[in-house]
Design a protein around this nucleic acid. Structure first.
Ligand SMILES: NC(=O)c1ccc[n+]([C@@H]2O[C@H](COP(=O)([O-])OP(=O)(O)OC[C@H]3O[C@@H](n4cnc5c(N)ncnc54)[C@H](O)[C@@H]3O)[C@@H](O)[C@H]2O)c1
Ligand SMILES: NC(=O)c1ccc[n+]([C@@H]2O[C@H](COP(=O)([O-])OP(=O)(O)OC[C@H]3O[C@@H](n4cnc5c(N)ncnc54)[C@H](O)[C@@H]3O)[C@@H](O)[C@H]2O)c1
Lengths: 206, 206
DNA sequence: CATCAATTGTTATTTTTTTCACATTGTCAG
DNA sequence: CTGACAATGTGAAAAAAATAACAATTGATG
């Protein structure tokens, strides 16, 4: 639908869907904005506005149809099906993330892993094949990968990112606490534990 | 100093400091707002405003004194020294995070780990002692722990959080993709990989 | 010692996001 | 069939954050 949504709205839509997925089998079930809001500590107005933005229209008496809601959020976030994701750097963190995502119910499919450690190349982690980073261009094209999760050592984060961007990656989830400079059009999201802890530390000062 | 800073500003301050720490030995060195901005893909105005908010005043010709900058950010974010942090749930992710933070240079000190797996209790992970979650109240008090990193299985996330809050924890970094409902005064930060990937996925649609 | 170029400090403006307020509407009880 | 209730849908207002604009300051230079 409309591709101009606020990032916060997109995040919340993702959470709505994940929460509602649990109820997806209840045919014809509805939910009120205030109920949904309560479950995620939001305001009903915010929920209604988010849903309005993606063109969902509820029933004035029964609320929003859960099935329709899940469907419409899917149309918006995932366009059709999910997207292909690569995991880059299969160390302690990389394996933990991989295990987590494989268990999670999501349209994000991890279809390849990259590393440079020869002992890992051509093996499978879970059921995900592991390739040498040098083959990224080829693999990324073949498997239509558009997103990378970056869990390589900090020293190589910048170089690895350059390589990934050359390969056609469009979005990066960066776990490496290293600042990455990406060109416009590339969507970067940073998970910086140190900064997050310091932020928490600041706001819990009395 | 002033405790009413925007969250985004606090995050950026943390990043400024981490970046500048590399230059801390250059006695008398200065840096311009546009230089600092360039290094982190921000605007110079934003940098200047952030620094203004914590009462840093630069030199109109030489820019900001790096040492003073690091010091003032420390005064603001860490008050005096750092803070004590506990890691809760020493699984794959927990160990990866622990290893990472121990290597990182930060005032956030991981001083305890909690789990319920008997084989882990009373051992040390790195040099961090591991306790049973039941002893959280005691340990949290004794070690003045105020922040917890939550890496337990999703099924127990809510119960574990309740336990931690009872023990006196004031801030939580939540890795469990489970929505936590915390009372006012508790600072919660969520790392939700699924939502982040879906957000990235949305914004790289052409 | 006056000029000039560059940078800061801060006010004003714009943009983004959230909250408020309330008219509108679908459904159900009577 | 007909209110009346309890929702939704959305314009308007407010709050938060980012950006722009520019006067004030500095110190190097001729
Ligand atoms: N920001 C966070 O929240 C957070 C938390 C934990 C770890 N980390 C970071 O995540 C990264 C990984 O941490 P880890 O504990 O898994 O480290 P690790 O050393 O266990 O794993 C790193 C992996 O990357 C591989 N690798 C090395 N160079 C590579 C390259 N050029 N291309 C592809 N793969 C390469 C290694 O072979 C290894 O498998 C580090 O940068 C660490 O700082 C970040
Ligand atoms: N959101 C993310 O980005 C992300 C990424 C990876 C994993 N995860 C989540 O992190 C959590 C941990 O993942 P993992 O791969 O390390 O799992 P894991 O099973 O390897 O580790 C879980 C650990 O928690 C311990 N534990 C179990 N119950 C506990 C309790 N009540 N109190 C304290 N400790 C307890 C277990 O003994 C184990 O050591 C999971 O919730 C997972 O979904 C989140």
């Amino acid at each position: 639908m409309n591709t101009k949504l606020p990032p916060r709205t997109v995040e919340r839509l993702s959470k709505y869907r994940r929460l509602l997925d649990k109820y997806k089998d209840l045919e014809g079930a509805h939910i009120y904005s205030h109920k949904l809001a309560g479950l995620l500590n939001l305001t009903p107005e915010q929920v209604r506005r988010d849903l309005m933005l993606i063109g969902i229209t509820g029933n004035h008496r029964r609320g929003y149809n859960i099935k329709e809601l899940i469907g419409m959020i899917g149309n918006t976030i995932d366009r059709h099906e999910g997207q292909q994701v690569a995991l880059v750097g299969i160390g302690n963190l990389g394996r933990a993330v991989l295990g987590f995502i494989r268990k999670a119910e999501t349209r994000m499919n991890i279809v390849a892993a990259f590393d440079i450690d020869r002992s890992k190349i051509n093996t499978h982690i879970g059921n995900v094949p592991c390739f040498h980073l040098h083959d990224a261009r080829q693999v990324v094209r073949d498997k239509s990968i558009r997103i990378a999760i970056l869990t390589v050592p900090p020293e190589v984060a910048v170089a690895t990112t350059a390589m990934l961007l050359q390969s056609g990656i469009r979005g990066i989830l960066n776990f490496t606490s290293v600042h990455l400079d990406v060109p416009p059009g590339i969507y970067l999201k940073d998970y910086d534990i140190i900064t997050s802890l310091e932020e928490i530390g600041f706001f819990i000062q009395e």
